[in-house]
Design a protein around this nucleic acid. Structure first.
Length: 109
DNA sequence: TGAATGACTTCGG
DNA sequence: CCCGAAGCCATTC
C-alpha cells in the first residue's frame, strides 16, 4: 500500500501537470521520474490513477500518440472523446499532430 | 522466492 | 510509421 505509492504518486503528479489540450508519452514521464526503463510501470501507475481524481490519464499515450490505454477507460471511446473535447484531434485511436501536441515534462518542467 | 503480467520502448527489416 | 521480436522493471500471485 504505502510503499508503492511513491512511484505512482510522482506519475500522478506529472500527469496532473499536463497542460490542457496537450499529451505526453509514458516514456517521457518515466524518464522525467528517473525511471526511463520503467515506461511500463507508468502505465501501471496510471492504472492506479483510476482511484486518483485529477489524473488526466487520457492525455497519456504511447510514443506514437496511440491511445493504448483507451481500453482501460469506461465505454468504448471515452478516452478519445476526452481528448477531442480538449481540442486534440484523434483519428483511429491516434493523436494527430502528435509532435505538436506533445508535452515533454523534461523540457517543460 | 520465482514466474507471470502489462495503459511501453527500442531495434532490425 | 508498419511489423515482429527482445528488453525492462515494479507489482502480483
Amino acid at each position: 500500500m504505502s510503499s508503492s505509492q511513491g512511484f505512482f504518486f510522482k506519475v500522478h503528479e506529472v500527469a496532473k501537470l499536463i497542460p490542457y489540450g496537450k499529451v505526453t508519452s509514458y516514456g517521457a514521464i518515466a524518464k522525467y521520474l528517473g525511471a526511463s526503463g520503467s515506461a511500463r510501470m507508468v502505465g501501471w501507475a496510471m492504472n492506479a490513477s483510476h482511484k486518483d481524481p485529477g489524473v488526466p490519464a487520457h492525455r497519456v499515450v504511447n510514443r506514437v500518440g496511440l491511445l493504448s490505454g483507451k481500453h482501460h477507460f469506461e465505454g468504448t471511446n471515452l478516452m478519445q472523446q476526452l481528448l477531442e473535447s480538449e481540442g486534440v484531434e484523434v483519428v483511429d485511436l491516434k493523436v494527430q499532430d502528435f509532435e505538436k501536441l506533445f508535452w515533454d515534462p523534461m523540457k517543460e518542467l
